[in-house]
């Protein structure tokens, strides 16, 4: 088995290296991917269309908004699947754990966490809201926000973190994020445009169509942030307790 795998991989490697010889050399501005009209259009027109300086955010939330919406749905469904896979099954689990965690929360660690968790959460909100002009956005801010709850669970106990953010509320918040995202898309659909065509939101808000796209992107990122926050914490809570939601790491 291993020998067969090795030979197979050697063959694939030779093929791929042979193909890699024909790639454009590294950093070539005239390579097909870089000189394609789509990428050039994004670079040239993002500022005029949406007034967002960060092109990645603009392409992510506006031009390719449909893609991002269903990526968010994928994250949501994955979290839901992890929860429901681990929840059921035989009630008597005889397998013992390898690790025995046997001490109470440490004073120094809990006090430090008490100090830095608000900072982390404010930073996560900053990353989410400032993603238009600097690196960042819904995914990064959401993951940082979820990490703050994971930090609470690691330093105290899973019960403490679940008291703040119960697992049912996790999925409510995650679904709420998708509803926000799809709701903004549907709103622009009802206002006469197409789905996720934010420029038509200018008909009900007192801004120009470009600024309407700018602010709708912020709303969309907030939806993504909700979903990712909740799902990251739900992933951790499910996996660390084997679905029992107690006796966690």
């Amino acid at each position: 088995m291993k020998k067969a795998a090795f030979i197979l991989i050697l063959c694939i490697g030779l093929l791929l290296a042979w193909a890699a010889k024909d790639f454009p050399s590294w950093g070539d501005p005239q390579s097909p991917a870089s000189s394609s009209p789509v990428a050039s259009h994004f670079i040239a027109n993002t500022g005029v269309d949406t007034e967002v300086p960060n092109m990645v955010t603009a392409v992510l939330a506006d031009y390719r908004g449909f893609d991002t919406m269903f990526e968010t749905v994928v994250v949501f469904i994955a979290g839901l699947a992890v929860f429901s896979i681990l929840r059921g099954g035989p009630k008597n689990r005889t397998r013992d754990r390898e690790f025995v965690v046997d001490f109470e929360p440490d004073l120094i660690v809990t006090n430090t966490v008490r100090l830095i968790v608000p900072v982390i959460q404010i930073f996560a909100l900053y990353v989410l809201a400032h993603g238009h002009v600097s690196p960042g956005g819904g995914f990064q801010g959401g993951v940082a926000m979820g990490a703050s709850f994971i930090l609470i669970a690691l330093s105290w106990d899973l019960k403490t973190a679940l008291a703040r953010f119960p697992i049912e509320r996790c999925f409510t918040v995650a679904a709420l994020g998708i509803v926000i995202y799809a709701g903004i898309g549907l709103l622009s659909l009802f206002l006469g445009g197409e789905f996720l065509d934010y420029a038509h939101l200018a008909k009900i808000f007192p801004v120009s169509p470009e600024m309407a796209r700018y602010h709708a992107m912020l709303g969309v990122e907030i939806g993504v942030g909700f979903t990712v926050t909740a799902i990251m914490f739900a992933l951790y809570a499910s996996l660390s307790t084997d679905g029992r939601m107690r006796d966690g790491l």
Binding site: F103, D106, I108, V109, T112, L115, I116, V119
Partner: peptide, 15 residues
């Protein structure tokens, strides 16, 4: 931030 967190993490590892 590093001044607060790094000693705490090494303390947690030690403990």
């Amino acid at each position: 931030f590093i001044f607060i967190t790094t000693p705490t993490s090494s303390h947690a590892l030690m403990r």
